[in-house]
Nucleic acid binder design. Structure first.
Lengths: 137, 137
DNA sequence: GTTAAAGTCTACTACTCTAGTAGAGTAATC
DNA sequence: GATTACTCTACTAGAGTAGTAGACTTTAAC
Protein backbone atom coordinates (compact mmCIF):
# COMPACT_ATOMS: atom_id res chain seq x y z
CA UNK A 1 0.00 0.00 0.00
CA UNK A 2 1.30 3.42 -0.91
CA UNK A 3 0.61 6.50 1.18
CA UNK A 4 -1.72 9.27 0.13
CA UNK A 5 1.33 11.46 -0.07
CA UNK A 6 2.67 9.40 -2.95
CA UNK A 7 -0.69 9.10 -4.60
CA UNK A 8 -1.39 12.83 -4.38
CA UNK A 9 2.13 13.63 -5.53
CA UNK A 10 1.70 11.50 -8.64
CA UNK A 11 -1.66 13.05 -9.39
CA UNK A 12 -0.27 16.54 -8.97
CA UNK A 13 2.68 15.85 -11.25
CA UNK A 14 0.32 14.36 -13.79
CA UNK A 15 -1.82 17.45 -13.62
CA UNK A 16 1.20 19.69 -14.23
CA UNK A 17 2.37 17.49 -17.09
CA UNK A 18 -0.97 17.89 -18.78
CA UNK A 19 -0.88 21.69 -18.78
CA UNK A 20 -0.85 23.24 -22.22
CA UNK A 21 0.92 26.46 -21.29
CA UNK A 22 4.29 26.67 -19.59
CA UNK A 23 3.37 29.13 -16.84
CA UNK A 24 3.28 28.21 -13.16
CA UNK A 25 0.18 26.59 -11.73
CA UNK A 26 -1.13 27.50 -8.30
CA UNK A 27 -1.40 24.92 -5.55
CA UNK A 28 -5.05 25.80 -5.11
CA UNK A 29 -5.83 24.88 -8.72
CA UNK A 30 -4.20 21.49 -8.36
CA UNK A 31 -5.80 20.86 -4.99
CA UNK A 32 -9.23 21.72 -6.28
CA UNK A 33 -8.93 19.72 -9.46
CA UNK A 34 -7.57 16.60 -7.77
CA UNK A 35 -9.62 16.80 -4.56
CA UNK A 36 -6.64 17.11 -2.27
CA UNK A 37 -6.34 19.08 0.97
CA UNK A 38 -4.44 22.18 -0.07
CA UNK A 39 -2.26 22.36 3.03
CA UNK A 40 -1.27 18.71 2.68
CA UNK A 41 -0.53 19.21 -0.99
CA UNK A 42 1.69 22.18 -0.16
CA UNK A 43 4.05 19.98 1.79
CA UNK A 44 4.10 17.37 -0.94
CA UNK A 45 4.95 19.89 -3.65
CA UNK A 46 7.64 21.34 -1.43
CA UNK A 47 9.20 17.90 -1.19
CA UNK A 48 9.04 17.50 -4.95
CA UNK A 49 10.60 20.92 -5.45
CA UNK A 50 13.47 20.13 -3.08
CA UNK A 51 13.99 16.85 -4.92
CA UNK A 52 14.42 18.73 -8.18
CA UNK A 53 11.21 17.79 -9.96
CA UNK A 54 9.51 21.15 -9.65
CA UNK A 55 10.35 24.82 -9.79
CA UNK A 56 8.30 27.45 -8.03
CA UNK A 57 7.54 31.12 -8.28
CA UNK A 58 6.28 33.20 -5.41
CA UNK A 59 3.84 36.10 -5.39
CA UNK A 60 1.07 36.98 -7.76
CA UNK A 61 1.02 34.82 -10.85
CA UNK A 62 3.23 32.34 -9.04
CA UNK A 63 2.91 28.60 -8.63
CA UNK A 64 4.66 25.38 -9.50
CA UNK A 65 5.97 24.06 -12.82
CA UNK A 66 7.88 21.02 -14.04
CA UNK A 67 11.62 21.46 -14.43
CA UNK A 68 11.95 18.68 -17.01
CA UNK A 69 9.91 17.29 -19.84
CA UNK A 70 7.41 14.64 -18.72
CA UNK A 71 9.17 12.04 -20.87
CA UNK A 72 12.37 12.60 -18.93
CA UNK A 73 10.83 11.92 -15.53
CA UNK A 74 10.67 8.28 -14.48
CA UNK A 75 7.88 7.20 -12.18
CA UNK A 76 10.45 5.20 -10.22
CA UNK A 77 12.30 8.35 -9.16
CA UNK A 78 9.08 10.05 -8.08
CA UNK A 79 8.10 6.95 -6.14
CA UNK A 80 11.43 6.80 -4.34
CA UNK A 81 11.22 10.46 -3.41
CA UNK A 82 7.74 10.29 -1.95
CA UNK A 83 7.36 6.72 -0.76
CA UNK A 84 10.90 5.51 -0.27
CA UNK A 85 11.97 1.97 -1.17
CA UNK A 86 10.29 0.12 -4.00
CA UNK A 87 11.25 -3.24 -2.51
CA UNK A 88 9.01 -4.94 0.02
CA UNK A 89 11.82 -5.72 2.44
CA UNK A 90 14.82 -3.51 3.19
CA UNK A 91 17.30 -6.35 2.52
CA UNK A 92 16.19 -6.35 -1.12
CA UNK A 93 16.16 -2.61 -1.69
CA UNK A 94 18.68 -1.15 -4.13
CA UNK A 95 18.47 2.43 -2.89
CA UNK A 96 17.48 1.95 0.75
CA UNK A 97 19.26 -1.28 1.65
CA UNK A 98 19.32 -2.46 5.25
CA UNK A 99 20.42 -5.78 6.64
CA UNK A 100 17.78 -7.89 8.39
CA UNK A 101 18.74 -8.67 11.93
CA UNK A 102 16.83 -11.93 11.95
CA UNK A 103 18.66 -13.40 8.96
CA UNK A 104 22.18 -14.73 9.13
CA UNK A 105 22.50 -15.19 5.39
CA UNK A 106 20.52 -13.48 2.69
CA UNK A 107 21.48 -16.17 0.22
CA UNK A 108 19.63 -18.73 2.29
CA UNK A 109 16.58 -16.58 3.01
CA UNK A 110 13.52 -17.65 1.05
CA UNK A 111 11.74 -14.37 1.75
CA UNK A 112 14.68 -12.52 0.26
CA UNK A 113 14.56 -14.58 -2.93
CA UNK A 114 10.83 -14.15 -3.36
CA UNK A 115 10.97 -10.43 -2.76
CA UNK A 116 13.75 -9.98 -5.29
CA UNK A 117 11.43 -11.38 -7.95
CA UNK A 118 8.68 -8.96 -6.99
CA UNK A 119 11.02 -6.01 -6.79
CA UNK A 120 12.45 -6.75 -10.23
CA UNK A 121 8.99 -6.84 -11.77
CA UNK A 122 7.72 -3.73 -10.03
CA UNK A 123 10.92 -1.85 -10.70
CA UNK A 124 10.75 -2.68 -14.41
CA UNK A 125 7.32 -1.08 -14.64
CA UNK A 126 8.28 2.01 -12.65
CA UNK A 127 11.51 2.51 -14.57
CA UNK A 128 9.92 1.99 -17.95
CA UNK A 129 7.08 4.42 -17.38
CA UNK A 130 7.75 8.14 -17.49
CA UNK A 131 5.40 10.89 -16.46
CA UNK A 132 4.52 11.22 -20.15
CA UNK A 133 3.45 7.56 -20.29
CA UNK A 134 1.64 7.97 -17.01
CA UNK A 135 -0.75 10.64 -18.30
CA UNK A 136 -1.39 8.78 -21.55
CA UNK A 137 -3.03 5.75 -20.02
CA UNK B 1 7.11 -2.64 2.47
CA UNK B 2 5.68 -5.65 4.21
CA UNK B 3 5.35 -5.90 7.97
CA UNK B 4 7.49 -8.13 10.10
CA UNK B 5 4.35 -10.08 10.85
CA UNK B 6 4.13 -11.16 7.22
CA UNK B 7 7.82 -11.79 6.95
CA UNK B 8 7.92 -13.87 10.12
CA UNK B 9 4.79 -15.73 9.09
CA UNK B 10 6.32 -16.70 5.77
CA UNK B 11 9.52 -17.81 7.45
CA UNK B 12 7.62 -19.87 9.98
CA UNK B 13 5.52 -21.57 7.32
CA UNK B 14 8.66 -22.26 5.33
CA UNK B 15 10.23 -23.80 8.40
CA UNK B 16 7.22 -26.07 8.91
CA UNK B 17 7.19 -27.03 5.24
CA UNK B 18 10.78 -28.14 5.47
CA UNK B 19 10.18 -30.54 8.37
CA UNK B 20 10.88 -34.18 7.53
CA UNK B 21 8.52 -35.69 10.04
CA UNK B 22 4.81 -34.98 10.28
CA UNK B 23 4.62 -34.29 13.99
CA UNK B 24 3.81 -30.89 15.46
CA UNK B 25 6.59 -28.37 15.92
CA UNK B 26 6.77 -26.14 18.98
CA UNK B 27 6.63 -22.38 18.69
CA UNK B 28 9.85 -22.13 20.63
CA UNK B 29 11.72 -24.21 18.04
CA UNK B 30 10.53 -22.01 15.19
CA UNK B 31 11.21 -18.81 17.12
CA UNK B 32 14.72 -19.90 17.97
CA UNK B 33 15.57 -21.11 14.50
CA UNK B 34 14.23 -18.04 12.72
CA UNK B 35 15.29 -15.45 15.31
CA UNK B 36 11.78 -14.27 16.05
CA UNK B 37 10.35 -13.07 19.37
CA UNK B 38 8.40 -16.07 20.63
CA UNK B 39 5.46 -14.08 21.95
CA UNK B 40 5.10 -12.20 18.70
CA UNK B 41 5.32 -15.41 16.72
CA UNK B 42 2.58 -16.93 18.89
CA UNK B 43 0.10 -14.34 17.68
CA UNK B 44 1.15 -14.82 14.07
CA UNK B 45 0.74 -18.59 14.20
CA UNK B 46 -2.62 -18.16 15.86
CA UNK B 47 -3.72 -16.01 12.93
CA UNK B 48 -2.49 -18.62 10.49
CA UNK B 49 -4.29 -21.36 12.39
CA UNK B 50 -7.56 -19.43 12.38
CA UNK B 51 -7.12 -18.82 8.66
CA UNK B 52 -6.89 -22.56 8.07
CA UNK B 53 -3.23 -22.92 7.21
CA UNK B 54 -2.14 -24.56 10.42
CA UNK B 55 -3.39 -27.09 12.92
CA UNK B 56 -2.25 -27.14 16.52
CA UNK B 57 -1.94 -29.55 19.36
CA UNK B 58 -1.76 -28.54 22.99
CA UNK B 59 0.18 -30.04 25.83
CA UNK B 60 3.33 -32.10 25.85
CA UNK B 61 4.50 -33.05 22.40
CA UNK B 62 2.22 -30.35 21.03
CA UNK B 63 2.89 -27.64 18.51
CA UNK B 64 1.88 -26.48 15.05
CA UNK B 65 1.72 -28.36 11.76
CA UNK B 66 0.63 -27.64 8.21
CA UNK B 67 -2.90 -28.71 7.28
CA UNK B 68 -2.13 -28.98 3.58
CA UNK B 69 0.77 -29.99 1.43
CA UNK B 70 3.21 -27.15 0.74
CA UNK B 71 2.47 -27.39 -2.99
CA UNK B 72 -1.20 -26.67 -2.30
CA UNK B 73 -0.57 -23.43 -0.42
CA UNK B 74 -0.21 -20.32 -2.55
CA UNK B 75 1.96 -17.52 -1.27
CA UNK B 76 -0.77 -15.10 -2.35
CA UNK B 77 -3.23 -16.50 0.17
CA UNK B 78 -0.68 -16.33 2.97
CA UNK B 79 0.14 -12.77 2.00
CA UNK B 80 -3.49 -11.71 2.03
CA UNK B 81 -4.04 -13.30 5.43
CA UNK B 82 -1.09 -11.62 7.09
CA UNK B 83 -0.58 -8.40 5.16
CA UNK B 84 -3.94 -7.71 3.56
CA UNK B 85 -4.24 -6.33 0.04
CA UNK B 86 -1.62 -7.11 -2.57
CA UNK B 87 -2.50 -3.98 -4.53
CA UNK B 88 -0.82 -0.68 -3.73
CA UNK B 89 -4.06 1.29 -3.68
CA UNK B 90 -7.42 0.08 -2.36
CA UNK B 91 -9.23 1.03 -5.58
CA UNK B 92 -7.18 -1.59 -7.41
CA UNK B 93 -7.50 -4.40 -4.89
CA UNK B 94 -9.43 -7.49 -5.88
CA UNK B 95 -10.04 -8.77 -2.36
CA UNK B 96 -9.99 -5.57 -0.34
CA UNK B 97 -11.51 -3.08 -2.77
CA UNK B 98 -12.39 0.41 -1.57
CA UNK B 99 -13.37 3.39 -3.61
CA UNK B 100 -11.08 6.41 -3.49
CA UNK B 101 -12.86 9.50 -2.26
CA UNK B 102 -10.64 11.82 -4.23
CA UNK B 103 -11.36 10.21 -7.61
CA UNK B 104 -14.60 10.71 -9.47
CA UNK B 105 -13.82 8.11 -12.09
CA UNK B 106 -11.41 5.22 -11.82
CA UNK B 107 -11.31 4.89 -15.58
CA UNK B 108 -9.78 8.34 -15.84
CA UNK B 109 -7.35 7.94 -12.94
CA UNK B 110 -3.76 7.52 -14.07
CA UNK B 111 -2.69 6.23 -10.68
CA UNK B 112 -5.32 3.53 -10.93
CA UNK B 113 -4.05 2.40 -14.32
CA UNK B 114 -0.44 2.32 -13.24
CA UNK B 115 -1.23 0.41 -10.07
CA UNK B 116 -3.24 -2.19 -11.96
CA UNK B 117 -0.13 -3.04 -13.95
CA UNK B 118 1.92 -3.46 -10.81
CA UNK B 119 -0.76 -5.47 -9.07
CA UNK B 120 -1.08 -7.84 -12.02
CA UNK B 121 2.63 -8.49 -12.06
CA UNK B 122 2.97 -8.97 -8.32
CA UNK B 123 -0.14 -11.09 -8.15
CA UNK B 124 1.13 -13.37 -10.90
CA UNK B 125 4.25 -14.10 -8.88
CA UNK B 126 2.41 -14.66 -5.62
CA UNK B 127 -0.22 -16.87 -7.24
CA UNK B 128 2.27 -18.92 -9.18
CA UNK B 129 4.50 -19.65 -6.21
CA UNK B 130 3.41 -22.15 -3.61
CA UNK B 131 5.00 -22.79 -0.26
CA UNK B 132 6.79 -25.70 -1.92
CA UNK B 133 8.34 -23.38 -4.51
CA UNK B 134 9.13 -20.88 -1.78
CA UNK B 135 11.38 -23.25 0.14
CA UNK B 136 13.14 -24.48 -2.98
CA UNK B 137 14.70 -21.19 -3.96
C1' DG C 1 5.31 51.90 -1.35
C1' DT C 2 1.36 49.57 -0.01
C1' DT C 3 -1.53 45.82 -0.73
C1' DA C 4 -2.74 41.43 -2.11
C1' DA C 5 -1.36 37.03 -3.83
C1' DA C 6 1.08 32.91 -3.41
C1' DG C 7 4.81 29.92 -1.93
C1' DT C 8 7.77 28.70 2.65
C1' DC C 9 8.45 27.02 7.03
C1' DT C 10 7.68 25.54 11.79
C1' DA C 11 4.95 23.49 15.06
C1' DC C 12 1.34 20.87 16.58
C1' DT C 13 -2.32 17.18 16.62
C1' DA C 14 -5.44 13.10 16.34
C1' DC C 15 -5.34 8.77 14.89
C1' DT C 16 -3.73 4.33 13.51
C1' DC C 17 -0.41 0.71 13.04
C1' DT C 18 3.62 -1.98 14.40
C1' DA C 19 6.01 -4.86 17.13
C1' DG C 20 6.04 -6.23 20.65
C1' DT C 21 5.39 -7.69 26.42
C1' DA C 22 2.89 -9.61 30.49
C1' DG C 23 0.25 -12.77 32.48
C1' DA C 24 -3.59 -15.67 33.34
C1' DG C 25 -6.20 -19.59 31.33
C1' DT C 26 -6.89 -24.16 29.03
C1' DA C 27 -5.86 -28.67 27.23
C1' DA C 28 -3.03 -32.76 26.75
C1' DT C 29 0.39 -35.94 28.29
C1' DC C 30 3.08 -38.57 31.59
C1' DG D 1 -1.50 -33.90 39.51
C1' DA D 2 2.40 -31.79 37.65
C1' DT D 3 4.33 -30.26 33.59
C1' DT D 4 4.20 -28.77 28.99
C1' DA D 5 2.61 -26.02 25.38
C1' DC D 6 -0.96 -23.56 22.95
C1' DT D 7 -4.78 -19.66 23.80
C1' DC D 8 -6.49 -15.39 24.83
C1' DT D 9 -6.87 -10.72 26.70
C1' DA D 10 -4.88 -6.54 27.79
C1' DC D 11 -1.50 -3.26 27.65
C1' DT D 12 2.39 -0.31 25.75
C1' DA D 13 6.16 2.55 23.48
C1' DG D 14 7.22 4.37 19.40
C1' DA D 15 6.68 5.51 14.63
C1' DG D 16 4.13 6.99 10.77
C1' DT D 17 0.02 9.15 8.40
C1' DA D 18 -2.70 12.75 7.17
C1' DG D 19 -3.50 16.38 8.11
C1' DT D 20 -4.25 21.76 10.52
C1' DA D 21 -2.79 26.44 12.12
C1' DG D 22 -0.43 30.26 11.65
C1' DA D 23 3.34 33.31 10.94
C1' DC D 24 6.74 34.64 7.38
C1' DT D 25 8.70 35.89 2.79
C1' DT D 26 8.70 37.13 -1.88
C1' DT D 27 6.65 39.06 -6.01
C1' DA D 28 3.61 41.79 -8.86
C1' DA D 29 0.26 45.26 -9.63
C1' DC D 30 -1.99 49.46 -8.34
Amino acid sequence: MISKKTKYGLKALGYLAKQKSDGPVQISSIAKSENISQKFLESILLTLRKAGFLGSKKGKGGGYYLLKNPDEIKIASIYRTLEGPIAMVPCVSLNFYEKCNDCDSEKECHVNHLMIQIRDNTLAILEKNTLADFIKK
